[in-house]
Write a protein that binds this DNA or RNA. Structure first.
Ligand SMILES: [Zn+2]
Ligand SMILES: [Zn+2]
Ligand SMILES: [Zn+2]
Ligand SMILES: [Zn+2]
Lengths: 142, 142
DNA sequence: CCCTGAATTGACAAGCGTTCTCAATTGTCC
DNA sequence: GGACAATTGAGAACGCTTGTCAATTCAGGG
């Protein structure tokens, strides 16, 4: 084999999903600017208002990356639309105002234990769970 | 005034959503034939296999009626699709096998108390909540 | 610097579940 | 039977999300 053969030892694949682009930075900034759950399209609009032009498809892709990385939480609104929020990285649940969207992160060690126990009891393994609380916050209740 | 005038005292409005039609009966029967969560389109297919022709829109409308009446539970699969199951009428949650869909209804008085307490603590009123547990059942885990 | 190539982007076109529209049909009650 | 609201079905419309693909951008290496 001669040296004409491409040197495959230099292939720096460059892991996808890690490149710090203008668009990803912008999405991150917008996510930091609100603390309730917003849809991808709302976030896309907020970006426009900030003068940051980011394609809708890119917004969806970026949110998916962040969700996979555990940097944003994803919920489904009652009509099935996905809504996103930057959250703390520890496992937690949400208390959400049905009217204004104000969100409180809550932890419930007892609930975690309970779900595990129930699953064990019925022979289910590899457990995950969803728990969200909806209500009307003090401000909205008047 | 003569008797030619229509007698408006006999208007029996006839409450919508209460008429026992062939289509509604068929949907009810199919719902009784499985005990995991199925999508509207799956239910529509099952109806076809039974020889009961029911329009897809009618399936959606009927499921919505039953859900409003509290006779079926509606969940959102991970990709946002609505899935339905005939359930007991008392408040409960679900332990669902991610692989085969086998479902167990579970009650958790402690969890109900916990959600109320959390809501009170933060001044939220008029509370509701969602809680679902996903895992792999014994049969699927092998 | 400049090159190379993979990663990323954006405009647009599907894809998919769900709802709407409206004329035709059906069930109820007189 | 007759009258009339409720219901149905076929298809169009809708809104969110994902796929397509050529053009662009970024990270390194030379
Ligand atoms: Zn969160
Ligand atoms: Zn509120
Ligand atoms: Zn938890
Ligand atoms: Zn149930």
């Amino acid at each position: 084999m001669t040296s004409t053969e491409p040197d495959r030892t230099t292939v720096a694949p460059g892991v996808p999903g890690t490149r710090p682009t203008r668009q990803r930075r912008a999405v991150g900034e917008v996510l930091a600017s609100f603390d309730d759950f917003r849809s991808a399209q709302e976030i896309h609009t907020l970006l426009g208002q900030r003068g940051e032009s980011v394609g809708l498809a890119t917004v969806y892709r970026t949110l998916q990356l962040l969700a996979d990385a555990g940097e944003v939480d994803v919920l489904r609104s009652e009509d099935g639309e996905a809504i996103y929020r930057r959250c703390s990285s520890t496992h937690h649940h949400h208390l959400v105002c049905r009217s204004c969207g104000a969100t409180v992160e809550v932890e419930g060690p007892a609930v975690e234990r309970w779900t595990s126990a129930i699953a064990d009891e019925h022979g289910y393994v590899d457990i995950s769970h969803t728990l969200e609380i909806f209500g009307t916050c003090r401000a909205c209740a008047g």
